Simulated scan of single mutants.
Amino acid sequence: MKDEYIHQINILQNNFNILVAKKFEDKLDNQLTAKQVLLLELIKQGFTSTKDIADKLNVSTSAVSQILNKLEDRGYIERNFNPQDRREIILNLADKAHQYFRDLAALKLQINKDIYGNLSSKDLKQLKDILEKIITIADESDQSNANN
């Protein structure tokens, strides 16, 4: 029975994602891959070196560099020399990335208003509590896998 619920949840999540993507696809630059967005998010959070990003994601610096090259070619990031150590390159978001994040923030507000805004406070609290449980379980699973 539990497996059937999980299967139904996966279908519902996919359907929700498809509906949201269809409704809002014209509102955001959808030319970015999930990995590119992840790297932009990390740079926005303050990760300014290829090595720091690679360490955070537990991947090779060359894998990160390949994605960063594409982001730089498309005008989303800038690479600058560290004035204190010219051997070090500092990653910064370019204007195009800042615009992407402004557009994303506006999109999130619209989704909150159009979709989540139609749920009752009780439903929103229940959804929040369940998502927090899922995140805790996923985090514990990730930590246990890292220790093995």
Rank of each mutant, 00 (worst) to 15 (best):
M1E: 09
M1R: 12
K2D: 13
K2N: 10
E4D: 14
H7Y: 15
H7F: 03
H7M: 11
Q8L: 15
Q8C: 14
I9L: 11
I9N: 09
N10I: 12
N10K: 15
I11S: 13
I11N: 07
L12F: 04
N14D: 13
N15G: 00
N17A: 09
I18S: 06
L19N: 04
L19T: 06
V20N: 02
K22Q: 10
F24N: 01
E25R: 11
D26H: 09
D26G: 06
K27I: 00
K27S: 14
A34L: 13
A34M: 11
Q36E: 04
L38D: 05
L39K: 07
L40T: 05
L42K: 03
L42P: 03
I43C: 11
K44G: 01
K44D: 05
F47K: 12
T48L: 06
T50A: 08
K51M: 07
A54H: 08
N58P: 02
N58K: 01
N58C: 06
V59N: 02
T61V: 03
A63P: 01
V64F: 05
V64T: 09
S65T: 05
L68N: 04
L68E: 02
N69H: 11
K70E: 10
K70F: 08
K70T: 12
L71W: 01
D73V: 06
Y76F: 15
Y76W: 00
Y76Q: 01
I77V: 10
I77C: 09
E78M: 07
E78F: 06
F81H: 14
P83C: 11
D85L: 04
R86F: 03
R86H: 01
R87M: 00
E88W: 05
I89N: 05
I90K: 09
L91W: 00
N92R: 08
L93T: 04
L93W: 08
A94G: 03
A94P: 02
D95M: 10
D95A: 15
A97C: 12
A97N: 03
A97F: 04
A97K: 05
H98V: 12
H98Q: 06
Q99L: 10
Q99R: 08
F101P: 01
R102K: 12
D103V: 02
D103C: 06
A105W: 00
L107A: 02
L107W: 05
Q110P: 04
I111G: 06
D114E: 13
D114T: 12
I115H: 05
I115M: 13
I115W: 10
I115E: 00
I115Q: 01
G117P: 08
G117C: 14
N118F: 11
L119N: 10
L119K: 13
S120C: 07
K122C: 04
L124H: 12
L127E: 10
K128M: 13
D129Y: 04
I130V: 09
I130C: 03
L131E: 12
L131W: 04
K133V: 10
I134L: 14
I134G: 05
I135C: 03
I135H: 02
T136Q: 13
I137N: 09
A138D: 15
A138Y: 08
D139M: 14
E140M: 14
E140L: 15
S141I: 10
D142Y: 14
Q143E: 11
S144M: 11
S144P: 04
S144Y: 14
S144C: 09
N145M: 15
A146T: 15
N148C: 09
